[in-house]
Design a protein around this nucleic acid. Sequence first.
DNA 1: TATTGTTATACTCTATAACTATA
DNA 2: TATAGTTATAGAGTATAACAATA
Lengths: 143, 143
Amino acid sequence: MPLEARLGYLLKHAQQRLTRASAEALAPFGVDGHELAVLAVLAAEYPLSQVEVAGRLGVDRTTMVALVDGLEDHGLVERRRSPQDRRKNIVELTAAGHDCLRQAELARRETERRFLAPLGEEAGAALVRALRVLVVGVREGEE
Amino acid sequence: MPLEARLGYLLKHAQQRLTRASAEALAPFGVDGHELAVLAVLAAEYPLSQVEVAGRLGVDRTTMVALVDGLEDHGLVERRRSPQDRRKNIVELTAAGHDCLRQAELARRETERRFLAPLGEEAGAALVRALRVLVVGVREGEE
DNA sequence: TATTGTTATACTCTATAACTATA
DNA sequence: TATAGTTATAGAGTATAACAATA
Protein backbone atom coordinates (compact mmCIF):
# COMPACT_ATOMS: atom_id res chain seq x y z
CA MET A 1 0.00 0.00 0.00
CA PRO A 2 1.52 3.31 -1.07
CA LEU A 3 2.25 5.84 1.60
CA GLU A 4 -0.14 8.44 0.24
CA ALA A 5 -3.09 6.10 0.68
CA ARG A 6 -2.60 5.67 4.42
CA LEU A 7 -5.24 7.36 6.46
CA GLY A 8 -2.74 8.55 9.07
CA TYR A 9 -0.59 10.21 6.43
CA LEU A 10 -3.58 11.85 4.79
CA LEU A 11 -5.03 13.24 8.02
CA LYS A 12 -1.69 14.55 9.17
CA HIS A 13 -0.85 16.28 5.92
CA ALA A 14 -4.36 17.66 5.43
CA GLN A 15 -4.14 19.18 8.89
CA GLN A 16 -0.68 20.61 8.24
CA ARG A 17 -1.77 22.23 4.99
CA LEU A 18 -4.82 23.80 6.53
CA THR A 19 -2.76 25.00 9.51
CA ARG A 20 -0.27 26.69 7.19
CA ALA A 21 -3.01 28.29 5.11
CA SER A 22 -4.79 29.49 8.25
CA ALA A 23 -1.61 30.95 9.68
CA GLU A 24 -1.11 33.02 6.53
CA ALA A 25 -4.72 34.13 6.44
CA LEU A 26 -4.77 35.13 10.12
CA ALA A 27 -1.35 36.78 10.25
CA PRO A 28 -2.68 40.22 9.21
CA PHE A 29 -4.92 40.21 12.28
CA GLY A 30 -2.14 39.38 14.71
CA VAL A 31 -3.61 36.12 15.97
CA ASP A 32 -3.12 32.43 15.32
CA GLY A 33 -5.74 29.71 15.26
CA HIS A 34 -5.56 28.99 18.97
CA GLU A 35 -5.91 32.65 19.91
CA LEU A 36 -8.83 33.10 17.54
CA ALA A 37 -10.55 30.13 19.17
CA VAL A 38 -10.16 31.80 22.56
CA LEU A 39 -11.76 34.99 21.25
CA ALA A 40 -14.64 32.99 19.78
CA VAL A 41 -15.26 31.18 23.06
CA LEU A 42 -15.23 34.46 24.97
CA ALA A 43 -17.70 36.03 22.56
CA ALA A 44 -20.10 33.11 22.86
CA GLU A 45 -20.33 32.99 26.65
CA TYR A 46 -19.88 35.47 29.47
CA PRO A 47 -18.39 35.58 32.02
CA LEU A 48 -15.73 32.91 31.70
CA SER A 49 -12.63 32.37 33.83
CA GLN A 50 -9.35 31.08 32.44
CA VAL A 51 -10.01 27.47 33.46
CA GLU A 52 -13.47 27.64 31.97
CA VAL A 53 -12.11 28.82 28.63
CA ALA A 54 -9.45 26.14 28.82
CA GLY A 55 -12.14 23.54 29.42
CA ARG A 56 -14.15 24.69 26.40
CA LEU A 57 -11.06 24.41 24.19
CA GLY A 58 -9.68 21.17 25.61
CA VAL A 59 -6.35 22.67 26.63
CA ASP A 60 -5.09 22.76 30.19
CA ARG A 61 -4.91 25.82 32.38
CA THR A 62 -1.12 26.19 32.15
CA THR A 63 -1.41 26.57 28.38
CA MET A 64 -4.19 29.09 28.82
CA VAL A 65 -1.93 31.40 30.82
CA ALA A 66 0.41 32.05 27.90
CA LEU A 67 -2.52 32.29 25.49
CA VAL A 68 -4.23 34.99 27.55
CA ASP A 69 -0.87 36.72 28.09
CA GLY A 70 -0.45 37.07 24.34
CA LEU A 71 -4.00 38.28 23.75
CA GLU A 72 -3.69 40.80 26.59
CA ASP A 73 -0.37 42.08 25.23
CA HIS A 74 -2.14 42.80 21.96
CA GLY A 75 -5.01 44.53 23.72
CA LEU A 76 -7.62 42.01 22.60
CA VAL A 77 -8.68 40.80 26.06
CA GLU A 78 -8.46 42.01 29.64
CA ARG A 79 -8.18 40.06 32.87
CA ARG A 80 -10.12 41.12 35.94
CA ARG A 81 -10.59 39.35 39.26
CA SER A 82 -14.02 37.92 39.85
CA PRO A 83 -15.65 39.64 42.86
CA GLN A 84 -17.59 36.42 43.55
CA ASP A 85 -14.48 34.23 43.65
CA ARG A 86 -11.22 36.07 43.91
CA ARG A 87 -9.26 33.07 42.71
CA LYS A 88 -10.73 33.48 39.24
CA ASN A 89 -9.64 35.70 36.38
CA ILE A 90 -12.61 36.73 34.28
CA VAL A 91 -11.32 37.14 30.74
CA GLU A 92 -13.11 39.82 28.80
CA LEU A 93 -13.02 40.82 25.15
CA THR A 94 -12.03 44.42 24.49
CA ALA A 95 -13.50 46.45 21.64
CA ALA A 96 -10.36 45.66 19.65
CA GLY A 97 -10.87 42.00 20.51
CA HIS A 98 -14.39 42.05 19.10
CA ASP A 99 -13.16 43.72 15.92
CA CYS A 100 -10.31 41.24 15.54
CA LEU A 101 -12.65 38.31 16.09
CA ARG A 102 -15.12 39.48 13.46
CA GLN A 103 -12.52 40.09 10.78
CA ALA A 104 -10.36 37.07 11.55
CA GLU A 105 -13.39 34.77 11.58
CA LEU A 106 -14.26 35.89 8.07
CA ALA A 107 -10.71 35.19 6.97
CA ARG A 108 -10.74 31.77 8.62
CA ARG A 109 -14.01 30.75 6.95
CA GLU A 110 -12.74 31.91 3.57
CA THR A 111 -9.58 29.85 4.12
CA GLU A 112 -11.61 26.73 4.91
CA ARG A 113 -13.77 27.35 1.85
CA ARG A 114 -10.74 27.64 -0.42
CA PHE A 115 -9.17 24.59 1.18
CA LEU A 116 -12.24 22.47 0.44
CA ALA A 117 -12.89 23.99 -2.98
CA PRO A 118 -11.18 21.19 -4.97
CA LEU A 119 -13.82 18.78 -3.67
CA GLY A 120 -16.84 20.70 -4.81
CA GLU A 121 -19.69 21.82 -2.58
CA GLU A 122 -21.25 18.44 -1.89
CA ALA A 123 -18.12 16.40 -1.24
CA GLY A 124 -16.71 19.18 0.92
CA ALA A 125 -19.80 19.14 3.15
CA ALA A 126 -19.67 15.33 3.24
CA LEU A 127 -16.06 15.46 4.44
CA VAL A 128 -16.95 17.76 7.32
CA ARG A 129 -19.92 15.57 8.26
CA ALA A 130 -17.76 12.44 8.21
CA LEU A 131 -15.11 14.03 10.41
CA ARG A 132 -17.79 15.15 12.84
CA VAL A 133 -19.02 11.57 13.14
CA LEU A 134 -15.49 10.31 13.80
CA VAL A 135 -14.48 13.02 16.26
CA VAL A 136 -17.66 14.09 18.02
CA GLY A 137 -19.39 10.76 17.56
CA VAL A 138 -22.69 12.18 16.37
CA ARG A 139 -24.35 12.89 13.08
CA GLU A 140 -25.69 16.22 11.88
CA GLY A 141 -28.30 17.65 14.22
CA GLU A 142 -27.99 15.01 16.90
CA GLU A 143 -26.67 15.64 20.45
CA MET B 1 -19.80 28.72 14.88
CA PRO B 2 -19.19 26.05 17.51
CA LEU B 3 -15.67 24.80 18.00
CA GLU B 4 -16.45 21.23 17.01
CA ALA B 5 -17.59 22.33 13.57
CA ARG B 6 -14.26 23.91 12.65
CA LEU B 7 -12.36 21.98 10.05
CA GLY B 8 -9.03 22.59 11.78
CA TYR B 9 -10.32 21.19 15.06
CA LEU B 10 -11.85 18.16 13.35
CA LEU B 11 -8.74 17.28 11.35
CA LYS B 12 -6.47 17.69 14.35
CA HIS B 13 -8.57 15.56 16.65
CA ALA B 14 -9.28 12.91 14.03
CA GLN B 15 -5.54 12.60 13.51
CA GLN B 16 -4.85 12.43 17.23
CA ARG B 17 -7.42 9.69 17.77
CA LEU B 18 -6.10 7.59 14.94
CA THR B 19 -2.54 8.10 16.15
CA ARG B 20 -3.45 6.89 19.63
CA ALA B 21 -5.33 3.89 18.26
CA SER B 22 -2.43 3.02 15.96
CA ALA B 23 0.08 3.31 18.76
CA GLU B 24 -1.89 0.79 20.83
CA ALA B 25 -2.33 -1.56 17.89
CA LEU B 26 1.33 -1.45 16.89
CA ALA B 27 2.83 -1.60 20.38
CA PRO B 28 2.86 -5.44 20.48
CA PHE B 29 5.13 -5.42 17.44
CA GLY B 30 7.61 -2.97 18.90
CA VAL B 31 7.22 -0.29 16.25
CA ASP B 32 5.36 2.97 15.89
CA GLY B 33 3.73 4.39 12.77
CA HIS B 34 6.87 6.10 11.50
CA GLU B 35 8.99 3.00 11.91
CA LEU B 36 6.39 0.85 10.18
CA ALA B 37 6.38 3.27 7.26
CA VAL B 38 10.15 2.88 6.97
CA LEU B 39 9.80 -0.90 6.85
CA ALA B 40 7.12 -0.61 4.17
CA VAL B 41 9.29 1.65 2.02
CA LEU B 42 12.22 -0.72 2.35
CA ALA B 43 10.09 -3.70 1.33
CA ALA B 44 8.77 -1.91 -1.74
CA GLU B 45 12.11 -0.86 -3.23
CA TYR B 46 15.68 -2.10 -3.07
CA PRO B 47 18.35 -0.97 -2.53
CA LEU B 48 17.64 2.30 -0.77
CA SER B 49 20.02 4.52 1.18
CA GLN B 50 19.00 6.50 4.24
CA VAL B 51 18.43 9.73 2.31
CA GLU B 52 16.42 7.89 -0.29
CA VAL B 53 14.13 6.44 2.37
CA ALA B 54 13.89 9.87 3.96
CA GLY B 55 12.89 11.33 0.60
CA ARG B 56 10.14 8.73 0.11
CA LEU B 57 8.71 9.54 3.55
CA GLY B 58 9.09 13.30 3.43
CA VAL B 59 11.29 13.51 6.51
CA ASP B 60 14.81 14.87 6.52
CA ARG B 61 17.96 12.84 6.85
CA THR B 62 18.70 13.86 10.42
CA THR B 63 15.37 12.39 11.50
CA MET B 64 16.08 9.23 9.55
CA VAL B 65 19.24 8.56 11.57
CA ALA B 66 17.33 8.05 14.83
CA LEU B 67 14.62 6.10 13.04
CA VAL B 68 17.11 3.62 11.57
CA ASP B 69 18.96 3.50 14.90
CA GLY B 70 15.80 2.31 16.62
CA LEU B 71 14.96 -0.25 13.95
CA GLU B 72 18.50 -1.58 13.98
CA ASP B 73 18.48 -1.86 17.79
CA HIS B 74 15.40 -4.05 17.47
CA GLY B 75 17.02 -6.18 14.78
CA LEU B 76 14.50 -5.21 12.10
CA VAL B 77 16.96 -3.61 9.66
CA GLU B 78 20.68 -3.61 9.02
CA ARG B 79 22.96 -0.91 7.67
CA ARG B 80 25.69 -1.75 5.22
CA ARG B 81 27.97 0.54 3.23
CA SER B 82 27.25 0.70 -0.47
CA PRO B 83 30.27 -0.66 -2.41
CA GLN B 84 29.32 1.68 -5.31
CA ASP B 85 29.28 4.80 -3.13
CA ARG B 86 30.86 4.44 0.25
CA ARG B 87 29.09 7.55 1.57
CA LYS B 88 25.76 5.70 1.45
CA ASN B 89 24.21 3.36 3.99
CA ILE B 90 22.06 0.78 2.28
CA VAL B 91 19.27 -0.06 4.72
CA GLU B 92 18.13 -3.63 4.48
CA LEU B 93 15.19 -5.50 6.04
CA THR B 94 16.16 -8.49 8.15
CA ALA B 95 13.99 -11.61 8.34
CA ALA B 96 12.59 -10.28 11.60
CA GLY B 97 11.90 -6.99 9.84
CA HIS B 98 9.89 -8.73 7.14
CA ASP B 99 7.89 -10.61 9.77
CA CYS B 100 7.26 -7.47 11.77
CA LEU B 101 6.16 -5.58 8.67
CA ARG B 102 3.69 -8.25 7.64
CA GLN B 103 2.07 -8.55 11.05
CA ALA B 104 2.11 -4.86 11.90
CA GLU B 105 0.64 -3.96 8.52
CA LEU B 106 -2.32 -6.23 9.22
CA ALA B 107 -2.79 -4.57 12.60
CA ARG B 108 -2.56 -1.10 11.07
CA ARG B 109 -5.16 -1.88 8.42
CA GLU B 110 -7.49 -3.34 10.99
CA THR B 111 -7.07 -0.21 13.09
CA GLU B 112 -7.97 2.01 10.14
CA ARG B 113 -10.96 -0.18 9.39
CA ARG B 114 -12.24 0.08 12.95
CA PHE B 115 -11.59 3.81 13.00
CA LEU B 116 -13.71 4.35 9.89
CA ALA B 117 -16.38 1.81 10.87
CA PRO B 118 -18.84 4.38 12.30
CA LEU B 119 -19.14 5.90 8.83
CA GLY B 120 -20.13 2.75 7.01
CA GLU B 121 -18.33 1.34 4.01
CA GLU B 122 -19.30 3.94 1.44
CA ALA B 123 -18.77 7.10 3.49
CA GLY B 124 -15.48 5.74 4.81
CA ALA B 125 -14.17 5.25 1.28
CA ALA B 126 -15.46 8.70 0.32
CA LEU B 127 -13.54 10.24 3.22
CA VAL B 128 -10.28 8.66 2.08
CA ARG B 129 -10.90 9.77 -1.51
CA ALA B 130 -11.63 13.33 -0.41
CA LEU B 131 -8.47 13.50 1.69
CA ARG B 132 -6.46 12.19 -1.23
CA VAL B 133 -7.77 14.98 -3.43
CA LEU B 134 -6.89 17.59 -0.81
CA VAL B 135 -3.43 16.24 0.03
CA VAL B 136 -2.15 14.60 -3.13
CA GLY B 137 -4.17 16.77 -5.47
CA VAL B 138 -5.46 13.97 -7.65
CA ARG B 139 -8.55 11.82 -7.86
CA GLU B 140 -8.67 8.04 -7.75
CA GLY B 141 -6.59 6.49 -10.51
CA GLU B 142 -5.13 9.73 -11.83
CA GLU B 143 -1.50 10.80 -11.43
C1' DT C 1 -8.70 20.04 51.59
C1' DA C 2 -9.67 21.63 46.81
C1' DT C 3 -9.39 25.09 43.14
C1' DT C 4 -7.26 29.03 40.31
C1' DG C 5 -3.59 31.19 38.36
C1' DT C 6 1.19 30.96 37.83
C1' DT C 7 5.95 29.40 37.16
C1' DA C 8 9.36 26.06 36.33
C1' DT C 9 10.61 21.76 34.45
C1' DA C 10 10.82 18.12 31.27
C1' DC C 11 9.86 15.73 27.26
C1' DT C 12 8.72 15.24 22.34
C1' DC C 13 9.15 16.91 17.49
C1' DT C 14 11.24 19.29 14.33
C1' DA C 15 14.48 22.47 11.94
C1' DT C 16 19.24 24.16 11.41
C1' DA C 17 24.10 24.18 11.53
C1' DA C 18 28.27 22.01 11.49
C1' DC C 19 31.46 18.15 11.28
C1' DT C 20 33.48 13.68 8.73
C1' DA C 21 34.09 10.86 5.04
C1' DT C 22 33.51 10.22 0.68
C1' DA C 23 32.68 11.57 -4.34
C1' DT D 1 32.43 21.52 -4.59
C1' DA D 2 28.78 18.70 -3.37
C1' DT D 3 26.54 14.72 -1.02
C1' DA D 4 25.62 11.10 2.91
C1' DG D 5 25.61 10.18 7.52
C1' DT D 6 26.04 11.95 11.98
C1' DT D 7 25.86 14.93 16.05
C1' DA D 8 24.63 18.91 18.62
C1' DT D 9 21.67 22.66 19.34
C1' DA D 10 17.68 25.37 19.49
C1' DG D 11 12.79 26.16 18.93
C1' DA D 12 7.77 25.01 19.20
C1' DG D 13 4.36 22.45 21.61
C1' DT D 14 2.74 19.99 25.44
C1' DA D 15 2.46 17.54 29.96
C1' DT D 16 3.70 17.47 34.98
C1' DA D 17 4.84 19.24 39.45
C1' DA D 18 4.86 22.60 42.68
C1' DC D 19 3.67 27.05 44.88
C1' DA D 20 0.71 31.19 46.49
C1' DA D 21 -3.78 32.96 47.03
C1' DT D 22 -8.33 31.89 47.85
C1' DA D 23 -12.41 29.04 48.79
